[in-house]
């Protein structure tokens, strides 16, 4: 790689601000005290539904499971009128074609994880092939993982180049870069990795694979939102955010939406710029909507299986 570029990555990383963890915790605690009731709650719940990347990323996934999930993505709960669909389904590359054909004639997108998800422990050539395969199968979005080992070893230029190379392989597909914040250990690292991903060409930055705990804590999401905000203030370019893993209740989803609104503003409150990576969140939101309509607490017995 060129020496100047290497130098500029060093500069980029050293320019990342350090994070005041206690301050972040206090700020995040305040988002959780907002009381969202009645019509606003209903609006927030529907908005939340529309931002979900309905996800199945298991070794035991089968075509049948993926098809069933795609059906759910389009028909969340037909008994309830005026429901949006989810934003996308998120699957392994081998399931992209199946998902794509199951979702034909719908606005639901297909996102595919790639780059040797979830560990990312594979050579670049394999990661590129993985990505190209998913794109050729018809993926609208690619969720890549960064090389956390390299990042923690300080090889920022390697991580940067890798993201840039995958971005190039994506073509028209939008690229989400998974930082796997549970392995980055500190909020300072989360901020550095966010800056690295954004400058390397990410369309979205995403917290976690969902395989490592802790995943999308509000502290981590807040730190990443600030990185997006700083980038927007500097360049005028919007970057998307996707917290994934651990957001399974409507309440937590609404807290996240409040945070996005207060940190980034209303422009980010669409599924073009904000997503939830989740599998069981959809049902909890549906049960909340039904609770608002009937006044009665609901049971998962009356909703489709996740």
């Amino acid at each position: 790689m060129k020496k100047e570029l290497q130098q500029s990555i060093e500069e980029l990383i050293s320019a990342s601000p350090t994070i005041d963890k206690v301050g972040v915790e206090e700020r995040v605690a305040r988002f959780q005290t907002r009381s969202i009731k009645g019509d606003s709650k209903l609006q927030a719940l529907k908005m939340g539904l529309n931002m979900i990347d309905l996800t199945t990323l298991e070794g035991k996934d089968t075509p049948g499971k993926v098809q069933q999930m795609c059906y759910k993505a389009m028909h969340l709960h037909d008994e309830l009128a005026n429901l949006p669909t989810v934003a996308a389904v998120c699957v392994y590359p081998s399931m992209v074609k199946i998902a794509k054909s199951a979702l034909v004639n719908s606005s639901v997108k297909v996102a595919s994880v790639s780059t040797a998800f979830p560990s990312g422990q594979a050579p670049l050539s394999v990661k590129l092939a993985d990505t190209t395969f998913a794109v050729n199968e018809g993926a609208d979005e690619i969720d890549m993982v960064i090389s956390r080992g390299k990042f923690l070893a300080g090889e920022y230029d390697y991580v940067f180049d890798e993201i840039a190379a995958i971005k190039a392989a994506c073509g028209n597909a939008r690229l989400k870069v998974i930082l796997e914040t549970g392995e980055l250990l500190t909020l300072d690292n989360v901020r550095k990795a966010s800056d690295l991903a954004i400058y390397a060409g990410a369309d979205f930055i995403k917290t976690s694979t969902g395989k490592i705990q802790p995943a999308a804590t509000m502290q981590v999401t807040f730190t990443m939102l600030l990185a997006i905000k700083d980038y927007f203030d500097k360049t005028g370019k919007m970057i998307g955010m996707k917290p994934a893993g651990g957001i399974s209740t409507a309440k937590l989803a609404i807290h996240n939406l409040v945070m996005v609104k207060e940190v980034l503003g209303n422009e980010w409150l669409t599924n073009q710029w904000f997503r939830f990576g989740a599998s069981s969140l959809a049902n909890d939101i549906l049960m909340q909507i039904r609770k608002l309509e009937t006044g009665v607490y609901q049971s998962s017995d009356y909703f489709s299986i996740d």
Partner: peptide
Amino acid sequence: PTLSTHMD
């Protein structure tokens, strides 16, 4: 009332 209406 909450307990007796609860669907779960």
